Simulated assay, not measured.
Amino acid sequence: MSAADQMLRAYRRMMARSGEQVMIRRGEGSAGRNIGVRARVTTFDAHEVVGDIVQTDTKLIVMAEDVTFDPPFQKGDRVMMHGRTLAIVGPPNDKTRRVGGVLIAYEFAVRG
């Protein structure tokens, strides 16, 4: 089993234990489309508050295999969770959660 396969299995276990279902929304009104994704919802550590990130933002780690939009993220996409609609802050990071060139998960901030 490759390192990427091992990491993907580990992420799936983590999401099963501590993840939750959130919706990513693309578009407006009846033309809008929602997809449900598994996400780990957490806060940013002080050393992660850089650039556009502020202490009150929420960090989401989303399984890449759940994101069926093409392209995966666009400006204006939103996240719906805990009864609120939140804006995605900046483009999701698809670099730090790759193993052997395989994208395992996206990491990004939401605000609202």
Rank of each mutant, 00 (worst) to 15 (best):
G90M: 14
T68E: 10
L86F: 01
A31T: 08
L86H: 05
A10N: 12
N34Q: 11
H47C: 12
R111C: 04
A31I: 11
D52K: 06
N93D: 15
R12C: 00
P92S: 15
V89F: 06
Q6G: 11
M7Q: 10
R13D: 03
Y11W: 06
D94M: 05
G83T: 02
Q55C: 02
P72N: 07
H47G: 11
T43L: 11
V89S: 04
D45W: 10
D52E: 13
R38F: 03
V67M: 13
V50I: 13
D52Q: 10
A64Q: 13
E65F: 04
V22I: 15
D77E: 08
M81Y: 04
R111T: 07
A87N: 12
P92T: 11
V54A: 12
G112Q: 07
I35D: 03
S18G: 10
P72D: 12
T56W: 02
V54F: 05
D94R: 01
R13S: 07
T56R: 07
M81T: 14
T85C: 04
R26E: 09
R33Q: 14
F44Y: 15
R111G: 02
A10T: 14
V54Y: 01
E28C: 06
S18C: 04
M81Q: 02
D57I: 04
G29A: 15
A105F: 02
G112N: 15
V102W: 03
Q74V: 05
T43C: 09
P71E: 06
N34L: 15
F73I: 10
E20K: 15
R13C: 01
A109S: 13
